[in-house]
Simulated assay, not measured.
Amino acid sequence: MTRTAIVTGAARGIGAAVAARLADDGLDVALIDLDSDGCAAGVRRINDAGGRALAIGADVSRADDVAGAVTRVAEELGPPTVLVNNAGIIRDNLLFKMSEDDWDSVLGVHLRGAFLMSRAVQEHMTRLRSGRIINLSSTSALGNRGQANYSAAKAGMQGFTKTLAIELGKFGVTVNAIAPGLIATDMTAGTARRLGMSVEDFYAAAAEQTAVGRVGRPEDIAHVASFLASEGASFVSGQVIYVSGGPAD
């Protein structure tokens, strides 16, 4: 029986790489992002390779959008048994410059989005007594200047992960988090530009601070997500795996 996965924030970057890898692993994949057109290329690549994929436009911070998206996935691809909560935004600023909207929007997409998506899919997973929830945290959960909102959201994601692991384990559902270091994506390239640095210099400086001497790639995260989604990871739950090219402080 083919399993069905949902990946949020799947239009580009980490989400797109995770969706492609899960499709390579033989799963049917629903790619969710604010604009379904942004996922069209990813869906086309998966379908052209012989897989099954579906693009859905939804705001994960809105309960109605989430309910509609999960219902559509279940009807068109089958009940979801893998969920990757990857959707996220950044609104970086120092605390005294940070607006309430900067705070609310970041926590809304990351934490509220993960809550709503997990609550919606757990009905399918617990009924089937099988499931994998993979949440994207970050090394920023340990603290990062100018990211009070993002750091709080990513730290919250770790507590959320551990709690769901306790609640859902008896139903055959594992819940884990991946905490990436700096990954070369459009989002981090945007950070470089906001800091007044070239993307190349920004990545080079980050690589110098990384034990393996390079920044991460979206595929690095996809490999770990692939394992956590697999049957072989059935005894791994409630864990936060730092994928940052070295020890996390």
Score class of each variant (00 low, 15 high):
residue 197 M to Q: 15
residue 206 A to P: 06
residue 13 G to W: 03
residue 239 Q to M: 15
residue 107 L to Q: 13
residue 21 R to Y: 00
residue 15 G to T: 08
residue 208 E to C: 07
residue 93 N to H: 09
residue 97 K to I: 02
residue 170 K to Q: 13
residue 49 A to H: 00
residue 184 A to I: 01
residue 37 D to G: 10
residue 245 G to D: 08
residue 78 G to C: 03
residue 120 A to M: 11
residue 83 L to T: 05
residue 213 G to K: 11
residue 81 T to D: 15
residue 231 E to H: 03
residue 214 R to D: 12
residue 244 S to I: 02
residue 234 S to T: 12
residue 196 G to N: 05
residue 106 V to N: 09
residue 194 R to C: 09
residue 98 M to R: 12
residue 109 V to Y: 11
residue 202 F to V: 01
residue 184 A to Q: 13
residue 118 S to Y: 07
residue 203 Y to S: 14
residue 38 G to Y: 00
residue 188 T to V: 10
residue 195 L to C: 01
residue 69 A to L: 10
residue 19 A to F: 02
residue 227 F to Y: 06
residue 121 V to W: 01
residue 126 T to E: 09
residue 39 C to W: 00
residue 23 A to G: 04
residue 176 N to Y: 00
residue 144 N to F: 03
residue 33 D to N: 12
residue 202 F to N: 06
residue 200 E to D: 15
residue 177 A to L: 05
residue 144 N to H: 06
residue 247 P to M: 14
residue 215 V to P: 14
residue 15 G to C: 10
residue 167 E to L: 03
residue 115 F to I: 07
residue 206 A to W: 09
residue 245 G to A: 12
residue 211 A to S: 11
residue 226 S to D: 02
residue 202 F to L: 01
residue 76 E to D: 14
residue 222 A to K: 06
residue 198 S to N: 14
residue 139 T to L: 05
residue 162 K to M: 09
residue 5 A to L: 07
residue 175 V to C: 04
residue 121 V to Q: 14
